[in-house]
Amino acid sequence: MSQSWWKILGAVLVIYSTVYGFLSTVPALPILHQSIRNLYFHVPMWFAMIVLFSISVFHSIKFLNNGNEDSDLKAVQSVNAGIVFGILGIVTGAIWARFTWGQAWSFDVKQNFAAIALLLYFAYLILRNAIDEEQKRAKISAIYNIFAFPMMVVLLFVLPRIGDSLHPGNGGNPGFNAYDLDSRMRMVFYPACAGWIMIGYWIYTLLARVAKLEKKKTL
């Protein structure tokens, strides 16, 4: 129980942010209207994804230092969990775009770069499946992972700011923190981010544990 407090906290924060995300009042803004509630779901998915990919690159670096297969296993399972949240981020974003921009996929610069960033990690999984020898696979995929992470950061946070984008905080558009994320929304948004990150980390630990058990069975 003492080791599970953060799991309980994560679940409570997600339930709280979901309930209040639909029931609490939001600023009356043109274009966005009630769709601004998706901020409580769309953005936390990306935050959780980034945290999980950060954990993955940490374990990839650790593997290259110590050659421990456990580090390689944690790296790949963190990517698996991160990809789930990346897909949820794109899906919730497409739903939001449908109601605010008129179409689910408008080829906005940030939409495109987000899709490319996710494809980088699909390529990571494909690379792993293409190499049979375990140590070689782990080493090559770890090196790829280390280079993929900064590329993902550039795709999500740097390149969209260079060109025009419909997304807040990009292409000259004001960000939510300076425009319309008032104190009422912060009381839901911040717990949502923390809660989904904890749930994402929990999913990663479960995947890693299952992978370890499966590996023991094959030995």
Rank of each mutant, 00 (worst) to 15 (best):
V26Y: 12
E214G: 07
L206Q: 02
A48F: 02
M151R: 07
Q135K: 11
Q111H: 06
K136N: 01
V158M: 07
Y179H: 07
L155F: 00
A97K: 02
E69C: 00
T205D: 01
A104L: 03
N80R: 12
Y16Q: 12
N80T: 03
V154I: 14
A148T: 02
K216I: 15
M151L: 10
A123E: 11
A148M: 04
G172L: 12
V109D: 06
D180A: 15
F107G: 04
A142S: 11
L13H: 07
R209V: 09
L125T: 05
K110F: 00
A211G: 01
G102C: 08
Y40L: 01
I36F: 09
W196F: 07
K62E: 15
A81I: 02
P44F: 14
W196M: 12
L213W: 08
G163S: 13
N112I: 14
H59K: 11
L118W: 02
V26I: 10
G67E: 11
V210T: 12
F122C: 02
I162Q: 04
A123K: 07
F41P: 01
K136C: 00
V154T: 03
I87G: 09
G163D: 15
G86A: 14
T18S: 14
K74F: 12
V154L: 10
A81Q: 07
Q34I: 03
V12S: 03
S17E: 03
F41T: 03
I126C: 10
I126N: 01
K136E: 00
G195Y: 09
V79K: 14
D164H: 06
N129F: 14
I197H: 13
F122S: 00
F107Q: 09
L39S: 04
I15T: 04
L206H: 01
G93Q: 06
I146F: 06
G195R: 05
V76Q: 15
W105Q: 10
S24R: 13
N80C: 01
R37M: 09
A148L: 05
L118P: 02
F189G: 10
M152A: 11
S141T: 15
V12Q: 02
K136L: 04
L32P: 07
K110P: 02
G102N: 03
Y144I: 10
D182L: 12
P30M: 15
N145C: 15
G163E: 14
I203F: 05
I95F: 12
A148V: 01
Q111R: 04
G21R: 14
I95C: 03
G89F: 06
T100C: 09
F113I: 00
Q103Y: 08
R37H: 06
I131V: 13
A11C: 08
V158G: 05
T205P: 00
G102I: 12
W5E: 03
A94H: 04
I131G: 04
I162A: 04
L119H: 06
A138K: 11
G163P: 13
K136R: 09
Y121W: 09
G86L: 09
L206P: 00
L159T: 15
L125G: 05
M49D: 03
V153Q: 08
P174W: 15
L9G: 05
P168C: 08
I83K: 10
L207F: 08
A192G: 04
A104K: 08
A28W: 02
A192T: 00
N170R: 00
L118Q: 01
N38R: 03
